[in-house]
């Protein structure tokens, strides 16, 4: 058994009187490709926000790499090795593509790296994304897939132990989905643990070692992809029966 990297225990999050997450538990193992599915509004992004520290959960605990994350600011969690992408890309729009990557490289990497090393590193990440020709472009001119890849590239620049990708493929064509999948698989093969949130079933099923499904803030299923697709509860949640 490989060890657990992220342990979510009974996490609850309420907004006013509304419960967005209720006692959600899950354990993500080191090196795992972990799928998170659920209908719109089921609480997926909220869970990610609790993990990344954008929101503080009201109840339960989140243990990462053996340490409780409670009270840590998002940037501190990033330094400990958690990176995320945003469902709606949020590029630094006044900067060029490569400058976007330089921010995490400069702020997360151990201090003392020179500007020159940083731009070389940024360039090599862009190469992984096959975006090196866009390095000095403004972000305003990027296409949808390029924005998604920039979002991923920026998260990778953090050199995370855990990468959480929030619907990185929404709105992409079939080929583009495959392109992003390929990148994620490669990162995982290099040792990165990945949580993928996705609506495109083909992609999650193909990618994930294990999947959990949320519905109305509750975990309704947890298992292997082939088991999950057949799970009646999941089917009900998606079909709204």
């Amino acid at each position: 058994m490989s060890e657990v990297l992220l342990n979510i225990e009974n996490v609850t999050k309420t907004f006013g009187g509304f419960t967005a997450l209720s006692k959600v538990s899950a354990a993500v193992k080191k090196g795992e490709r972990f799928g998170l599915i659920g209908p719109n509004g089921s609480g997926k992004t909220t869970l990610i926000n609790c993990i990344s520290g954008m929101l503080q959960n009201n109840g339960g605990s989140i243990i990462f790499d053996g340490k409780d994350l409670k009270g840590l600011q998002p940037h501190q969690r990033t330094k400990r090795g958690i990176a995320r992408t945003f469902q709606i890309p949020r590029p630094f729009h006044s900067m060029t593509v490569i400058q976007n990557l330089q921010i995490p490289l400069e702020f997360v990497s151990s201090s003392g790296t020179s500007q020159k090393n940083i731009s070389e590193e940024a360039m090599s990440i862009l190469e992984v994304m096959s975006m090196e020709d866009k390095a000095h472009h403004e972000t305003s001119g990027l296409t949808q897939i390029e924005l998604r890849k920039l979002e991923l590239a920026r998260a990778i620049a953090v050199k995370p132990k855990l990468l959480v990708s929030d619907e990185a493929m929404a709105g992409l064509t079939g080929n583009e989905v495959d392109e992003v999948l390929e990148i994620l698989v490669k990162l995982n093969e290099d040792g990165m643990t990945i949580i993928m949130i996705e609506h495109i079933m083909r992609a999650v099923m193909q990618f994930s070692h294990r999947i959990i499904c949320l519905d109305a803030g509750q975990k309704i299923a947890d298992g292997l992809p082939e088991v999950i697709v057949k799970d009646p509860a999941v089917e009900r949640a998606y079909l709204g029966v």
Binding site: M54, T78, F86, F107, V108, V158
Partner: peptide, 9 residues
Amino acid sequence: EAAECMGVP
């Protein structure tokens, strides 16, 4: 928010 998540304190 993106800055904070990219490690900017």
